[in-house]
Design a protein around this nucleic acid. Structure first.
Lengths: 327, 327
DNA sequence: ATGAAAGCGCTAACAG
DNA sequence: CTGTTAGCGCTTTCAT
């Protein structure tokens, strides 16, 4: 393996000189030695040892991203936004899937600390109250889900309550009188806020909130399916606000199986606007979150924190209604 | 920051002793000192510095995964399979998106080398003939796409030609006489092989291969859409074999816009069986690849290579026909 | 059963 | 303009 030392020997200079040249700190280096060293570096195919550099510099130019599951379109888009931004900022990203399990979250947090990542972006597991999260000195930004923490961390979220309000109101304006809500559980913060928005919209429009029309389980297609089956059993509904698009996909599936037409018999609106939503049949009307941008902003904020910049530690991005075919 | 040195001082032992205890190489350590040290480690919340360890040990327990785009459901599933397997093997994974650009591929390869990853899993950019790929001494396994390389690397692929043959044959058995093929370009190896399978199936069943019914562009929804538009302009088709499911999704979209019913007027079959395919309308009939397993097998092979195990460097996984509603 | 010491490859303060 | 040197935190050989 070619090291700085070997280059130094071959060029008859010190390692310090080589280091300076490689890192562009060569204001005081003669052009002659600069050329000579660069030539040898090239010829030998020298690759700097980043590990040694990191040890010395006490930074790894690596960040960790902890999320439930990259296979979930929401998180893959988030991850992509984060990776792109990280690349621009000169960082690499280590990917960690938790499946919403606190145990895995804890494990990854430990690994990332040992690996001395410069910062961590995390969508906390539902209800996570991690010891490691609280203790860690590593800069961190929480995306999508807020959790209670006594140390200062960055936060990137979206106006969930308002988005949900918009969604429900839209359903009402389309003439729905019996509007169901299918979402994840309340310990999932975004889900809880969307529930609030749903309630407020009903109340402000003179509609009664019927707890039997609320089905809270998971942010999955399966839950959407089961939610509709459960709702249909005990209610008549003419509109459903789904806590995310995956749920909406499952819901529509179930509605079709019950010979209910969307949007004629039942109108459905989702949340997120994941990339596939527009290709569903009918194409999903939904509350769009700037998912990719969420990832981008998370690393921008993280990089700012790492660089000890004085910034606002909470950023709220805006949602937007996208009207398509499902209501 | 707590270091091994500090622990050693607090416990009145040498750093060597602490190191041995931490790493379980404590056969010759008295139970008394072991307890004492462990206690202090716990109390101080000591976290080993993985960077220093890596420098000394000359391994990072990290692998890189290079792929076109995690937002593409195929690759997110592949990445998930890889990450899960890596976690089991004690490795972390650095995620790199290339968008199929050789330049980005090259850049990431360099970064990964500098970061001293123990191995690399890569879905090479189309037509990639990377200098870095050829030079690198880092263990590597290529997934999905084979590229020509003069050094020994692991390969995990799928029987593409055969899968395509199955797909096309299935369309023929369903009564299609005019079968189009929409896929990515030939420089994409899997696409080229699927084209071969398509051709062979037509020939072996007495059907003529009509170059005007072949549309080669990208593995994207947009290409599927454009492909159908192009085919419809100059041909009548009653069946389309799509090189992957994304193309199939775009194709069905375009077909619907042309008031053609799927599968009644035109039968469509895809390739991959990405997770969303079953939720399309109609649900996609497709050739399933074991995508998640592809990722898993890739890291298993990579870990074996890193460990200098003597293994078969080429593994071919099998495809399987999944019949659903689109033909 | 324990410790001293060398060294992984690099950077940077300081000296010359 | 260039080199010497000390260490970053860890593992491991070899003594004791």
């Amino acid at each position: 393996m070619t090291t700085i030392k070997k280059i130094a020997e071959l060029a008859n200079v010190s390692t310090a000189t080589v280091s300076k040249i490689i890192n562009g700190k060569d204001q005081y280096i003669s052009e002659a030695t600069r050329q000579k060293v660069l030539e040898i570096v090239e010829r030998e195919g020298y690759i700097p040892n980043g590990v040694a550099k990191s040890l010395k510099m006490r930074r790894t130019k690596t960040i960790g991203i902890i999320l439930p599951d990259v296979m979930n379109l929401f998180f893959s888009e988030l991850a992509r936004g984060a990776e792109d931004a990280a690349e621009k900022e000169g960082y690499s990203v280590i990917l960690c899937n938790t499946d919403n399990k606190e145990l895995k979250e804890e494990k990854y947090l430990n690994i990332l600390h040992e690996k001395m990542v410069d910062g961590i972006i995390m969508t906390a597991a539902e209800g996570s109250m991690n010891k490691s999260v609280k203790i860690s000195k590593t800069p961190m930004v929480l995306v999508d889900r807020d959790i209670e923490l006594d140390k200062p961390v960055g936060r990137i979220t979206v106006n969930n309550e308002e988005g949900a309000f918009m969604a429900t109101k839209f359903l009402i304006e389309k003439g729905c009188k019996n509007i169901g809500f299918i979402s994840s559980q309340k310990k999932n913060k975004p889900s809880a806020e969307r529930l609030k928005g749903y309630r407020r919209a009903l109340k402000e429009n003179g509609l009664e909130v019927d707890e039997k029309k609320i089905f809270l389980q998971n942010f999955t297609i399966a839950s959407g399916y089961e939610g509709v089956m459960a709702l249909l059993e005990r209610n008549k509904v003419d509109g459903i606000f789904c806590g995310n698009d995956l749920i909406a996909i499952g819901a529509i599936q179930a509605l079709k199986e019950n010979n209910l037409k969307v949007p004629k018999d039942v109108k459905v609106i989702g949340f997120d606007d994941i990339s596939m939503s527009q290709f569903m049949d009918p194409p999903l009307t939904t509350i769009k979150q700037p998912i990719y941008q969420l990832g981008e902003e998370a690393v921008k904020m993280l990089v700012a924190i790492i660089g000890k910049k004085d910034i606002d530690m909470h950023k709220v991005l805006r949602t937007e209604l996208i009207e398509r075919g499902s209501c």
